[in-house]
């Protein structure tokens, strides 16, 4: 059974441990601006929402890439950016309708969540259980992936 990140904003306290863990895992730095998971703040509502790639079935980023720099990890289901192949054209950043693949100016490449080879550092670091890594069926991500009536009838994997 493939697993995926399950995010429960109700439990998030905006401690930003996930952002730090991600920045450390991928950049050996605690500069949270480099994190691939972002906690968005809603002051009025007093709400915090961690947000990152859902490894969606359509994989808009992967199909849009002109040079084959995004590949599917058959084990985790993650769509992974191959940095040496990426030319930094950014077309994936506008193709992903979720806004979860981003350009990093310091490397000249894009980055996105790659599920840390099946051991996501953000989930490990989250002290409240707002981010967990669980069986994909549980996450309700299916609903999110279908959001906006995307071409579920024409999935990219056909």
């Amino acid at each position: 059974m493939q697993k995926s990140l399950h995010i429960d904003p109700n439990k998030c306290t905006a401690c930003l441990q996930c952002e730090m863990a991600c920045a450390w895992e991928n950049h050996r730095s605690f500069t949270i601006a480099k994190s691939r998971i972002k906690v968005f703040t809603f002051h009025k509502e007093g709400r915090f929402v961690p947000y990152t790639c859902t490894q969606c079935d359509e994989a808009w980023c992967m199909t849009a890439c002109p040079v084959d720099a995004i590949r599917l990890d058959p084990v985790t289901g993650a769509k992974i950016v191959l940095e040496p192949t990426c030319v930094g054209c950014k077309v994936c950043t506008i193709a992903c309708p979720f806004g979860t693949i981003n350009y990093v100016a310091s490397t000249g490449k894009v980055q996105k969540c790659d599920l840390c080879d099946g051991e996501p550092a953000c989930a490990k670091a989250c002290p409240t259980g707002a981010i967990t890594y669980v069986d994909a069926d549980w996450t309700g991500l299916g609903k999110m992936r279908q959001w906006a009536g995307k071409t579920d009838t024409n999935p990219a994997t056909v």
């Binding site: 950043t93 309708p97 979720f98 806004g99 979860t100 693949i101 981003n102 100016a105 906006a148 009536g149």
Partner: peptide
């Protein structure tokens, strides 16, 4: 502005 720009596509195409 280059962060999360894909969301513009999501909002526009999804007619949200």
């Amino acid at each position: 502005f280059a962060d999360h720009v894909g969301a513009f596509r999501g909002l526009i195409e999804g007619r949200v």
